[in-house]
Simulated assay, not measured.
Amino acid sequence: MPHRPAARHWDIFCTVIDNYGDIGVTWRLARQLQREFGQRVRLWVDDLASFARLCPGLDPECDVQERQGITLQRWPKTFPDGIAAADVVIEAFGCQLPDAYLAAMAARPVKPVWLNLEYLSAEDWVEGCHGLPSPHPRLPLTKHFFFPGFTERTGGLICEADLLVERARWQADAAAQAAYWKGLGVPPQAEGELRVSLFSYATPAAGELLRAWTAGNQPVRVLVPEGKVLGDVAAVLGDETLQAGDVRQKGHLAVHVLPFTDQPGYDKLLWSCDFNIVRGEDSFVRAQWAARPFLWHIYQQEEDAHLVKLDAFLSHYGATLSAPARHALVAAFHAWNRGQGMAAAWAALTPQLAELQRHAQGWPKQALGSAGLASRLVQMVENTLQ
């Protein structure tokens, strides 16, 4: 940006979904707006107890508190009157603003910039919808749609200014990685060992792949943060009591169950593994910044609408791959998301991992484009208020 933007007050409203993706995105965005652009941010959250898993030190019983420069405020079911509306208002992922807050927005002499932060998609229609206005039917307010995406005509992707440099420095620092693994109780990487992080929704594909690794010839060490896929892991190992801190070995497969971590801790896990399996939206983007090959477990939608979204991403991500690598990658993504055929898909993918690793190294700068999401968001606000 040509100059530092004016410091404005932002209100971000978010409802916590059980998979943490929504709050993960808004928490990351709030911190970036404050740290890099000097904005004053208040994050309204309806479920502080769940949010606390991503934000160590957060007190779920406290209605208003400050963490990492952000004001965190409980979003109560009955929204109070008398709350002043901010200069910029973001309703994240279609959550509905309270009537009392809308009235406060309408009462301002200078109306707030009101944005609906949408879910990320690589589909072509996103470019035509990004920035479109939606006037309120009764109040003198206009909401605009902000679509994250993979092209210059979208809202871009969330990426902190120094993240790619920090990641490259970490991946070049063998001592830092060794200390990291030691802190998690994970032994040094053996010769020929594949190290994989597994953070997905429950799926039969997980069990199929783990059984293939168990019976395979290559040692595979899988790091599993606590989450929905742990039941599939437990079924393969024959141990329904799996919990954080447990380590199990079966054939050529070693499994370490990790505690749920904060966002910087999860970044380090992605950066330190050879291959990552991720889910949802926030983890999906972070896996791309990790510059490692990955599989994405997309959130399932009715009538297989999620598979259209999946293919739209793969058309971008795989555009410059060789035909064998592209076909193997698409097949593996589909096998994981359809819950079948994963063992065969992995066997076909394995010979392509070297090319996929080279591709993953160059992808972040291509995906980021001219600016990240926060920068494009701030610029849209500046243009609107000029």
Rank of each mutant, 00 (worst) to 15 (best):
R53I: 02
L210S: 00
W363S: 04
L349E: 03
Q243H: 14
L349F: 10
L58V: 03
G362D: 09
R42V: 12
A175C: 00
P148D: 04
L163N: 00
H297A: 11
G207W: 08
E191R: 13
L139A: 06
F313V: 07
L307A: 00
V220Q: 02
A178S: 13
W27M: 10
E127C: 13
E303R: 15
W336N: 01
Q73N: 01
Q340W: 08
L33Q: 01
R326E: 10
A347Q: 15
L54C: 02
V236Y: 08
L139M: 12
V247H: 15
W75G: 02
E152W: 06
T320H: 14
R8D: 11
V196I: 14
G207T: 08
G280C: 06
W336M: 14
H334S: 11
G69K: 06
F79A: 03
S283N: 15
A86K: 00
D47A: 09
E36W: 01
P2S: 13
L48A: 05
V113M: 07
P364E: 04
A178V: 03
S315Q: 15
V16F: 04
V255S: 10
L368S: 04
V88N: 09
G245I: 08
R28F: 05
Y20A: 04
A179V: 00
L198M: 11
N337W: 09
W170G: 01
Q301A: 03
I90V: 15
K182R: 14
E123F: 09
A323F: 08
L72H: 09
W213I: 08
H297F: 11
L58K: 08
R74L: 10
L377I: 05
H252A: 12
S370E: 14
H144L: 03
A343H: 06
F51C: 13
V308N: 02
W346P: 02
F51E: 05
Q301V: 03
Q243A: 14
T241F: 01
V381N: 09
A168N: 11
L373Q: 12
Y317S: 05
Q189M: 09
P109Y: 08
D63Q: 13
V16Q: 03
L242C: 08
G82K: 07
A174T: 14
V381P: 07
L163G: 02
V196D: 05
P112I: 07
I277K: 02
G69C: 08
H144S: 10
D59F: 11
A103S: 12
V285D: 07
R338A: 10
L307G: 06
N383D: 15
R376G: 05
P204Q: 11
R153N: 14
R74A: 13
G216W: 06
D162K: 07
A122S: 02
R195D: 01
P187Y: 11
H327L: 12
D99H: 12
R279T: 01
A344D: 15
L132W: 07
A305S: 00
V378P: 05
A305M: 05
I23D: 07
A360D: 08
L184C: 00
L242V: 09
E61T: 13
E61S: 15
L253S: 01
A106L: 04
